[in-house]
Design a protein around this nucleic acid. Structure first.
Lengths: 331, 331
DNA sequence: CTGTTAGCGCTTTCAT
DNA sequence: ATGAAAGCGCTAACAG
């Protein structure tokens, strides 16, 4: 591989001239520039990122820290693609790190493997956050997370999402609604889900049959809880499903030959792509994960550029009606 | 940040002593080692990856090249997680690059941003492959891809997968089967899908109603084609769905209130996770994408370690019966 | 407008 | 068992 030295020698100029000819940060005579360009082409020269990085003490890459083994789904891809593209546009690369301990996470910054981090799926009192905060390292939280002052985060307005979802069901005419959500807690977004439910109940008149179980609801949770719900109150005309439980809800209803939305409406909170893959297509308060990730990445890049940033962004909830909701039959 | 120089000065030894004390590649007296370790702890020293990388002319990171804007789904996550974890275990980080041109792809290797690449979703005569091959850069192909000699690739046995899927339907008693697959072609895995169909037809006795359209079938394709199929032959008792079309197939059947598997069986080829998310759970020939990615990554790492490798690996097809298949009603 | 030079932090050869 | 010194490839301050 040709180095800048080779180019300089071949072109009969100094290294700095080659450098500036290629980066245009100081004026270079046209003749010299032409010559340099020619030699660069001839030797197939390309500046080594390794040399640049050491010299500038910047890795020009950001890390995405993913938890151990969550339910990886299509929505995670949105985050990754969005982050990668946004970082790439700013000449940074994005690396993924799975299941790192707090120590390992900090280590990535300390040894300059990455310049900054985006943390996803963080939990309350996450040891990684505390470790990073102490070291004053640049990082941004993305997605479901506790809200701590002094931190930069991009989150989704779950409280509003839940409220909007229930409001929609009520306005369609539903009065007996099944509620599937994580058990109440003051931690993380579960708190906001409960707040949304409470606000809807205070605002509208409907009978809720609630099953609040677990912390992060997956598909099987949805199935199991729906079976339980149908025993508790077989006459629900609509079900609100938090997390990924909606897939299990739909499967349970399918096995009972309860038609959606004819016999029972289902509404959830998820990303557009996941909603489009469900059967039938799920009416949902869509989480704009792609945009959120882009915002988070841009904030991190700004931090890396030296800007002092401390912002908590809350993406708004917007309902998208698809195929899984309708007015109840006997209205 | 403390550097190795600082540690050496504080411990009253040379840089190389610090280095070897920390890396154990030459004998160090116990007393010196203790002292160095103590100073390292005291100064909170950690070797900068930037310095190491330049010195060793290795970026210690591998790149994953993803195409422009495909249907990103949960199965893609399997590849990323698997690759990231495998690379991480070998002290490499993994970066994702989306929608790079052939030039940009080669550039990543030329300027040492990464040491090697894993290419996914490659197409026939992919310009990126040609560019990389010329430069003799280390890379491995993963997933659906053409088979070119001299290259290292990890692929799935689609022909066998299709055969096994159809065989399963026939053995369940199905004789009128709907076939949804990409249009015939000598290119890529589409070729193998057709080969599998032909082999099944030569081996078993069943009436196929085929709709071969498009190149990579997505959810909407599946929906549209199923609607067409039901017009062509309303009496199919089972449907084979290639690619991601099975989701559309199930949705179409749902809208017609055709019960799965009671009125019609559905079988597909996808990853376990995607199959588990469908309604009902899809009987499928599972693509072991997690394992395949791990193998691909290990092969790449071996290449980076200097081994001469040229291997085409084909992951075997294994059918997993879930909820979407059963014997036909009026057998 | 161009050249000289120092040095980023590390690894490794050579010397003792 | 340890130290001195070179140098990976680049950028940028300084000098002209």
């Amino acid at each position: 591989m040709a180095t800048i030295k080779d180019v300089a020698a071949r072109a009969g100029v100094s290294q700095s001239t080659v450098h500036y000819a290629l980066n245009g940060k100081r004026s270079i005579s046209d003749s010299v520039r032409q010559r340099v360009i020619a030699v660069v082409a001839e030797l197939d020269y390309s500046a080594s990122a390794l040399g640049q990085r050491l010299r500038q003490s910047r890795s020009y890459s950001i890390g995405m820290i993913a938890p151990q083994l969550p339910t990886w789904d299509a929505s995670s891809m949105e985050m990754l693609m969005s982050t990668s593209a946004t970082a790439g546009a700013a000449h940074h690369s994005m690396a993924i790190f799975v299941g790192q301990s707090a120590d390992q996470t900090v280590q990535l910054l300390r040894n300059q493997t990455v310049d900054g981090l985006i943390l996803i799926e963080t939990t309350h009192n996450d040891p990684r956050i505390e470790a990073l905060r102490e070291g004053k390292y640049p990082f941004v939280l993305l997605g479901r997370t506790e809200n701590l002052t002094g931190l930069t985060s991009v989150d989704f307005d779950f409280e509003q999402a839940v409220f909007v979802a229930l409001e929609n069901l009520v306005k369609l005419g539903h009065r007996r609604i099944g509620l599937i959500a994580p058990e109440p807690s003051t931690l993380e977004n579960r708190y906001y889900v409960q707040r949304g439910i409470e606000r809807a109940q205070a605002t509208y008149d409907f009978v809720a049959t609630s099953v609040f179980e677990g912390q992060r609801l997956n598909v099987e949770d949805g199935y199991r809880i729906t079976e339980k719900l149908l025993t508790l109150e077989p006459n629900v005309t609509a079900i609100f499903a938090a997390g990924h439980s909606h897939v299990g809800v739909l499967r349970s209803l399918y096995s009972h030959n309860i038609r959606v939305p004819d016999d029972c409406s289902v509404i959830g909170i998820t990303t557009a792509q996941v909603a489009e893959w469900s059967i039938p297509k799920l009416t949902s308060v869509d989480i704009p994960l792609f945009d959120m990730s882009q915002i988070a990445t841009k904030l991190l890049l700004k931090k890396l550029a030296g800007e002092e940033i401390c912002e908590q962004i809350l993406a708004p909830a917007k309902l998208v009606t698809r195929e899984s909701t309708a007015a109840p039959k006997n209205t």
